[in-house]
Amino acid sequence: MRRLPILGDVSRVSDDGLEGLEHNFVTARIEDLVKWSRARSCWPATFGLACCAIEMMATGAAHYDLARYGMEVFRASPRQADLMIVAGRVSQKMAPILRQIYDQMMEPKWVISMGVCASSGGMFNNYAIVQGVDQVVPVDVYAPGCPPGPETLMHAILTLHESIRTGELTRRREANDGGAAIHVEAPLPEDTTEQPVQLGSR
């Protein structure tokens, strides 16, 4: 009897095909698995600026409970975060710091522009406010509102999750060389003729 570490007894496979296995299992492309896990463990950086930061904190607190989406760990260190929620108006003085923090985050990384001030300057069309944070960092999802309620922020987050899961974002990123263009080559047995799997390439 031939036993393999995970599959167990494989002696009947030659007669019965997959039904001859001792266990059931699900097959998936590794790329989909990675996208799924990226979408389900998106850790935001604490980047609260103004009013929206209060609503962002409310979203993480007891009533709205962002933990349901695996996102309650707001990381203070940009190195540990993959989502930047720009919550509030970005002043001219803050813009270079915002960009520095974005640069310190690891790939793949995403940005939600929370509230009208971050998205377009909002009602403050004056000397002090950057008219849209997309002039400084690439934005993936814009959440409207002044400030957006926790429901709006959650909708933005779920929209982002869906985009990460379907790979739409990574596809767009690679097309314009914007980021998330990492390649993981899985080690394969020598006798196979298949091409190595490329992550983030579709």
Partner: peptide, 22 residues
């Protein structure tokens, strides 16, 4: 100053009824 919004300048361009919004 990292959140300087220029509200006092914006307030000069809004009417008194719009002022509280600012």
């Amino acid at each position: 100053g990292y959140l300087h919004t220029g509200m006092e300048k914006t307030g000069e361009n809004l009417s008194y009824l719009q002022g509280p919004t600012n």
